[in-house]
Simulated assay, not measured.
Amino acid sequence: MKAKLFCYLPYRVVMGLLIIMCLHSPGFSQAGKIGSLAYLRARNGIGGFNLGGLLTGEQEQALTYIDGEGSKPDADSCVTYEYHPDKQLELEEGLTATHICVRTWQNKIVNIYVFFNRNQGYKMLSKFLHWYGTFTAKPNDYQDVYLWDSRTVKLLLSYHPDDDQGIAVFTSVPLTNTINAQNAKRLTQLLTSNE
């Protein structure tokens, strides 16, 4: 009897470890609990726009260059578009945007700029606190500026009493790091070529 128990023990241990590994793999684990930065990372954007992803065909049809036709890339080699829906854009759970701008690098979304009426600022803050938990920083105690900072997504929410519009900026941290590394490399090459 003891011999059978010892024969099955390694099999059970191995199977237990496999089950634990599967439960912690991305396919089996939860996408992030609401009310946490993990949920911000899992959502990875807003209003159907996903950071790091490509624009859908429908989204591309509703885009125009922010600086007019044939807009040239900015200093970071990014192109910014404005999204023109027929009416105010319904984001999620009653939030609306007056307009959205999308900044891309090599056709991948780096930033999503969500503009909204200032009077919706508290509603936006309330939803973000519900979805993403307590903000990680508040740069100024006297201004309505809030920052959620995770490893892969940053979110800045700002609305001021003096402005008509508020803004929420979603940023892809990995793409921003790649752009910064590219810029540093270009600067180094430029400096070494001028010596």
Rank of each mutant, 00 (worst) to 15 (best):
K4M: 12
F6L: 11
F6C: 02
C7W: 15
P10K: 00
V13N: 05
M15V: 15
L18H: 06
C22F: 15
L23G: 05
L23T: 00
H24N: 14
F28S: 08
S29F: 14
A31W: 11
I34P: 09
L37W: 00
R41N: 15
N44F: 06
G45R: 03
G45V: 00
I46N: 04
I46K: 03
N50V: 15
L51G: 03
T56I: 04
G57Q: 08
E60S: 09
T64C: 12
D67I: 02
G68T: 05
G70E: 05
K72V: 14
A75C: 12
S77L: 10
V79T: 07
T80M: 01
Y81E: 02
E90R: 12
E90M: 13
E90S: 14
T96S: 06
H99M: 10
I100E: 02
V102L: 06
V102T: 05
W105M: 01
Q106M: 11
K108I: 05
R118H: 09
Q120S: 00
G121Q: 04
M124L: 01
L129F: 09
W131V: 09
T134D: 10
K138L: 04
N140K: 06
D144M: 09
Y146D: 02
K154E: 00
L156K: 12
P161G: 07
P161I: 08
G166T: 00
G166Q: 04
F170E: 05
N177I: 07
N180I: 11
A181N: 05
R186S: 10
T188G: 11
T188Y: 11
Q189N: 15
